[in-house]
Simulated assay, not measured.
Amino acid sequence: MKKRLLLWEAAGFLFTAAVGALLHFTYDWSGGTVLAAAFSAVNESTWEHMKLLFFPVFFFSVIQVCFLGRNYPNVLSARAAGTLAGLVLIPTLFYTYTGVFGRHWLWADIAVFLIAAAAVYAVDFLLLERRCPGGLWRQVAGLLVLWLLAFLFICFTFRPPQLPLWQDPVTGLYGIPVS
């Protein structure tokens, strides 16, 4: 059972890394469609890069719940905890290293993304492996957290707060670029 779970978590990490990388470009590749904007990065802000982690994790979670939900009654609460850990790591690591060095590097940005993706599935694995209680209220809370995050990522793409997390460092603008 542990080996099967580990394979699922590794598959989730690989799926998230691959799809997250593709989502960095799909908005431009689509010609700027609204559907692509909802799930892809529309600019270079930290928030949009967090979205690159969230949506692959979210979509993989749907698949994983279908296959593992019976054996792991705490799958939604564990995934919500892992997702929050990964999402917190992106701005924490990015702003820490750029604050220390005064600049950013593409290789370091990719490393931050991969570390955050690994954290999602590591936290998830640890909670599922321990079989932490999966009471109904925890599952409902986990589901609500994931859906709330999905709503916020989509909403703030089209109506971003005027705060540094949402500001594109390249253009200085917020949200979808105006052509």
Rank of each mutant, 00 (worst) to 15 (best):
M1C: 06
M1P: 11
K3N: 13
L6T: 14
L6R: 14
L7S: 15
A10T: 15
G12S: 13
G12M: 12
G12T: 13
V19D: 01
G20A: 04
A21S: 12
L23V: 00
H24Y: 05
F25L: 09
T26I: 06
D28M: 08
D28T: 13
W29T: 01
G32I: 07
V34P: 00
A38D: 01
F39H: 01
N43T: 06
E44R: 13
S45L: 04
W47K: 00
H49F: 12
L52A: 11
F55N: 02
V62F: 15
I63C: 11
I63Q: 10
C66T: 12
F67I: 10
G69P: 09
N74H: 03
L76K: 05
A80V: 04
A81L: 13
G82E: 10
G82C: 10
A85C: 15
L87N: 08
L87Y: 10
L87W: 10
L89M: 13
L89I: 08
L89N: 05
I90T: 08
I90N: 00
P91D: 11
T92F: 15
T96E: 00
Y97A: 02
Y97Q: 12
G99M: 07
G99V: 08
V100S: 00
V100L: 15
F101C: 05
A108F: 14
A116Y: 03
A117M: 07
A119I: 08
A119E: 08
V120L: 11
V123E: 06
D124G: 00
D124S: 12
F125R: 12
R130Q: 13
R130S: 14
G134D: 04
G135D: 09
G135S: 09
G142A: 01
G142S: 06
L144H: 01
L146W: 00
L148G: 14
A150N: 03
A150T: 09
F151N: 00
I154Q: 07
F156H: 07
T157R: 06
F158I: 05
R159Q: 11
P160V: 08
P161Q: 09
L163Q: 13
L165I: 10
L165S: 03
D168T: 11
P169W: 09
V170Q: 11
L173Y: 06
I176C: 03
